[in-house]
Design a protein around this nucleic acid. Sequence first.
DNA 1: ATATGGATTGCCT
DNA 2: GGCAATCCATATT
Length: 192
Amino acid sequence: MRPLERPFYERNTQVVAIELIGKVLTLHQNGTAISGVIVETEAYFGSGDPASHAYRGVTPRNRVMFGPAGVSYVYFTYGNHHCLNIVTEREDTAGAVLIRALEPISGMDVMRKRRPNAQDQELTNGPGKLTQAFGITREHSGVDLTKSSFFVAEGTDSRYLRIQAAPRIGISRAKEKVLRFYLMDNPFVSTL
DNA sequence: ATATGGATTGCCT
DNA sequence: GGCAATCCATATT
């Protein structure tokens, strides 16, 4: 499994959000591969998208969203949770795809240890849950996913999948935009 | 220096 | 379904 390369990410954020469905996120830690199929994503743009962290321009937190595509953007929210994004678009154009849910493939023993009170089905069925299961924190922000032990690889081509579009979740602005995408009938999607 | 609210989760009714 | 928890980034004074 080779990492997807920069040109894949260096495109329109919505297109990347859709095509990321069915691909495989992998993180190597201490000789173990933790991985899962991406089953739910959301697209966030820059100016023009009031729900995006990048809406008002560059800040210390969001600056990676304005940098090269294919780099991770991890932020901390609600005092408890980390969320994983992958930067999109050409450099200087803000954009990122939030990874909202995964279907575990490997490393489930590690995931269960990190989420001791979770049923297997709740291991990675939400943006804060999957970062906890993978052990992803802000230290994993700004990592180049095209050349590290943290990457996304080809899985099932999104062309062959039934993908549903819906409004994004948990935001207070731009609620009408249909920028959430998920695999139909997949039990690991955060909300059907 | 202070105020506000959040790209969520889990527990309680 | 409702809501508290909990910390930090950002905006405002």
